[in-house]
Amino acid sequence: MKQRRKTSIVAGACLVFCLAASAVTLHGTDQLRPQGTLEDVLFITSPKVLKRASLGYDGLLADIYWTRVVQYFGFRHHNHSLSYNLLAPLLEITTHLDPHLVVAYQFGASFLAPAPPSGAGQPERAIQLMEYGIQNNPDNWHLYYDLGFVYYMNLKDYKKAADAFARGSKVPNAHPFLRLLAAQMAEHAGEFDTARMMWTATYQNSQDKLIRQNAVEHLRSLRVDEDVTNLQEAVTHFGERMGRLPVSMSELAAAEGLPGVPVDPDRHPYKLMPDGRVEVGVPDDFSFATRGLPPGYKPVTKFHDLQP
């Protein structure tokens, strides 16, 4: 009896110790690889080979690859990485394994096309991906929308964008704004309005957290761009009228008949610089803003919720 208790105690202690030691070792093994969860070498790069190797369990494998996409992007994005060279192959593998995984195409449109650090800077790969998606899901208007989006936002190819939106508008149950967008592309007038409409549509048409967050960031930055443009015009107007620059934002507001000191989406007042430039209060809060930034400012993107 005593013997048995002794053995149990020793075995129990050994179990706890070895569990702890194995966890520590594992942690150490993780540290060995600089990029954390995914190595920068994908050995099986051919989606077709992988599909065969999945022995028919391609759906499950697609899901696993999809989580890898999200992890890979999230991890790199969090580290402000400038290269996302695995994003395109990972997405291609995922969509080949499950060609109906629409969220993967949308993810590709949002993050493959834009230039680093907000994306991989590979709009051509994004377009390939979208065309593959459309080929497999011809009745899904979201994909046409995303395709047009890439043409418009990243390649500034208004003709191709209009074409994509027009194709999408012919799909049964397509959202009516596709036709509208097609028309607007033709004019490519009212840039802010179009952009706002598109980002709003992106936000509304996706369930993916990253994509929606990205759209919100863009909408907020758009609002700043628009505000700064208007305020800058007001400064010019003030100068023309008074022959000098306004000394403060409140003076400008009073002279132009604004309801108060103008504020950005975070309720921070816009700043009026001595040289007459209008600047946003905290530039880091608006990663995609193109106006109202201090000279030489470099944007840093942030995805708060991705931080582990």
Binding site: D30, T37, T67, V70
Partner: peptide, 9 residues
């Protein structure tokens, strides 16, 4: 590894 990735998210 994927499981650990999930855990991290």
């Amino acid at each position: 590894e994927d499981l650990r990735g999930f855990a991290g998210m």
